[in-house]
Amino acid sequence: MKRTLSLLLCVLLTLSLAGCAPKEETLQIFAMDTVMDMLAVGSEAREALSASAQEINRLEALLSRTRESSEVSAINSGKTVTVSDETAELLQRAVQYAALTGGTFDITVEPLVSAWGIHTESPKVLSADEIAALLPLVGSGHLHMDGRTVTLDEGCSIDLGAIAKGYASDRVAQIFRDYGVEGGWVSLGGNVYAHGTKSDGKPWSVAIRDPQNTAGAAALVGLSNQFAVTSGGYQRYFTAEDGTVYQHIIDPSTGAPAISDLLSVTVICGNGTMADAYSTALYVMGLEGAKAFWQQHSADFDMVLITQDNILYYTPGLQGKLTVDEGGAYDAKLLS
């Protein structure tokens, strides 16, 4: 009896020691107009996080449209400018994504975003004439690039906001690998990168926010070394005087806030920049367009579409990773 008891005590003691896992560090910063959270586990976790924060601040200084000293502001000034290799490459990718998505993602939509004032305190509804006047300024053709030399047509402007956070998550992923981070994640305002696994070897559990009950989860997805980005009208919107609700994503083809039958789009893949661009594009495309686009590029990414009819579509790559509450708000359907 006594032996059993002392054995039990030993087991309990061992259990309490096992609680001392490798060091877990967290960091929260405010950058790129959003709150960013990071977590890293590993012997150099702290260093990895501060390097990541520095990198994000560097990218913001480089790519912000609202900072006068940034390269994007230099381009928007209308003069011919020479930019860094990094900016040039990111611009090329943006143009490439615009071509791939049929212009549903387009960094040159900026004049309309500004005119609608979506990201300001006082958004306003544009008239058809006002839109018609600005719409000709939209299109990748206005951006002329020759290596690192960039010229933008008069009146046009660009905003990398729709891929900057995705690109930042790619950079953080590289930093996590360089510092030998065992496991961790970054959440950059709608952009998530999950690195490695949790200490118990399980993938990180990412909750896809319920667009209609924003404190709840529509689904959980287990991710490891993957990026996930969600775009949805619920994230930012304004209600006009006549009661119409306008959400924040401008459809480059109409010059007006996109009218989508989707509540949110989540793109999951191995590239943060692409996930960021595609999530915006697919939201603008709507359900049928998004399905068709995925069928053409199914090797590149997985996605979760939440529709206004309370259906949650997901792609086969997420089978076994995605959990949707049975009897919850959404019926899960597998795309094929």
Partner: peptide
């Protein structure tokens, strides 16, 4: 059993 990260 809860999520580690909230997305969106």
């Amino acid at each position: 059993d809860g999520p580690d990260i909230i997305l969106g």
